[in-house]
Design a protein around this nucleic acid. Structure first.
Lengths: 211, 211
DNA sequence: TCTTCTATATACTCATCGGTATATTGATTA
DNA sequence: TAATCAATATACCGATGAGTATATAGAAGA
């Protein structure tokens, strides 16, 4: 509607939307820097002064964009959980039998675990959060767990998955796929995609030889 | 040799051995209290004052029995790693084909992860340790990993295990079995033994139905 | 142009906590 | 009995780091 069609003249005067976008961008940058440092050094061992310094800004600026330190962490974890939920939901809506869809979910799940925000989910114990934060956190993880369980049940129903204990299987799968969040280094030999494929194959195929 | 055969008269005067045993017992109590609190609230969130208070003693007493805070943690983690190594070694020396021995190791491994000290291994990231501590820690974990890999190789060689990627499989198994260290509560419905069995069965059998 | 709002910094407060200096008490040994 | 050592406490020090009070500079709006 309004002006600002020609990106030709980059005016130093910013419109309301531009300013809002700027703000969002800065918020984002703070979050990214924070999650990286939390993952690398641990939440308690990372001071907001450190985070600020890594961005060349000062601590009050972080407080300006995000509330307190726990807010920063919650935001990071929430991002990770959203990635995980999205992975589960989209893969679940695909065609194919239960096993095929589960495979797809597991693969996406593993990939998220090698992303900064996904990693953060695994590395952040309830200990770090306030009771309310921890409750929210648990509820969201539970929803993801239920998604996976539903898929396993589908697979058992349609015969594409063996009649396993659904609860324990979901825990086992999640545990295995969470692990890369703790050891995977972005500069490893295998790409995240290769790792995800390999792990999923092992979990689905099992160790015992097939007759 | 010496006196003190009749435990009849519990004298308040303690012999050298008794005093050494007392000392060891106290050290042990401090460690147990510490590991519990570390697991429940996190290392950084647990102060040595807290640990001392939980035992009805004062902080300098802890320093008297163990060096500094990192020492306490290292001792706890070392205990856990020793349990893990022992599990791997004894199970490995048993009779049976590769798969049977691997199954035995995995089961023991899972059980250790539901013990206070085993849990501590999983919950303690390298971040918490000094570079030297972390190096030692990594070396020990690597040895355990190699033990498991060797067993997988044995199984592949004797045909009891499918020809999987050894490295990735070891990671996947360890990841899955580490997980109870993070979520298992001692008061759960299933006993550690049941959980261990269920997880190992799933990992060995896989999800895909066997023909 | 005057006011107000946004973004940012400097410089501070206050609590926590690891670690230590030092005192005390009682048992062991010479 | 004097000297020593082990076990324990109280009371402190110093650093770190979360969070805040306050100032400033510039843009937006009236």
């Amino acid at each position: 509607m309004a002006p600002r069609l020609a990106s030709a003249a980059p005016s130093p005067f910013r419109s309301r939307e531009e300013r809002e976008r700027d703000r969002e961008e800065k918020r984002e940058a703070v979050l990214r820097a924070a999650v990286r440092m939390f993952n690398a050094r641990g939440f308690h061992a990372t001071s907001l002064d450190d985070v600020a310094a890594s961005l060349g800004i000062s601590k009050p600026t972080i407080y300006h964009y995000l509330g307190n330190k726990e807010q920063v962490l919650i935001e990071c974890v929430t991002r990770g959980l959203e990635l995980l939920s999205a992975a589960a939901d989209t893969a679940r809506a695909q065609p194919g039998d239960g096993l095929a869809r589960l495979r797809s979910v597991l693969r996406s799940y593993a990939l998220v675990m090698m992303d900064d925000f996904g990693r953060c989910v695994v590395r952040t114990g309830d200990e770090f959060l306030s009771p309310e934060g921890a409750a929210l956190f648990r509820a969201r993880k539970r929803a993801i767990d239920l998604s996976i369980r539903a898929l396993i049940e589908d697979g058992i129903a349609d015969g594409s998955i063996a009649p396993v204990d659904v609860r324990m299987t979901a825990f086992t799968l999640a545990g295995a796929l969470n692990w890369p969040g703790r050891w995977h280094a972005p500069d490893g030999l295998l790409s995240p995609s290769e790792i995800a494929d390999a792990m999923v194959d092992i979990l689905i195929g099992g160790l015992a030889p097939r007759a």
